[in-house]
């Protein structure tokens, strides 16, 4: 359980942050941490702790899969790309044709989040399609 010791600060931080459904297990020399954070800041904090233990994530001995919980009532999301526009595609995948774009910082309507990675959205212009969920931040 050397890995559990190495990442103890991280698992302690996850427990302290009240990560829901927290699961920590070691398998074939890799530690898997799964759970759901209440918000994006909590998730980012855990990643900072991870970065302190394993600078630049070069060890390859941890898979930290902490998602952010989203209230089912949430209907809008903000585009959180670094600076560029976010592509809206016909289907869930970068191989799908682009049907529209949402500007950086724009708040758009969430239609369906049944796919974890690709959310179905609608822009204020009425364009509907799929966006990469990692670039969307649910609006409370």
């Amino acid at each position: 359980m050397a890995l559990a010791d190495k990442y103890k600060t991280l698992t302690d931080a996850a427990t302290a942050a009240g990560i829901a459904d927290l699961a920590v297990r070691e398998q074939d020399g890799i530690l898997y941490i799964d759970g759901t954070a209440a918000d994006g800041a909590t998730k980012d904090h855990l990643w900072e702790v991870y970065n302190q233990i394993d600078p630049n994530f070069t060890s390859g001995d941890l898979v930290l899969n902490v998602n952010v919980a989203i209230d089912a009532a949430v209907t809008h999301a903000k585009v959180i790309t670094e600076s560029s526009n976010l592509n809206i595609r016909k289907g869930p995948g970068t191989d799908q044709p682009i049907v529209g774009k949402a500007a950086h910082g724009e708040v758009i309507t969430l239609v369906n989040r049944s796919n974890d990675l690709w959310w179905l959205v609608r822009t204020n212009d009425g364009e509907e399609g799929y966006c990469y969920a990692q670039y969307l931040e649910a609006q409370a």
């Binding site: 994530f57 070069t58 899969n65 670094e82």
Partner: peptide
Amino acid sequence: SLITLMQHLSALKPKKIDNKL
């Protein structure tokens, strides 16, 4: 950008991320 990339990849349920970047 490294943290963002790692966050995106970790959500895909890989066995391991071998980071030689």
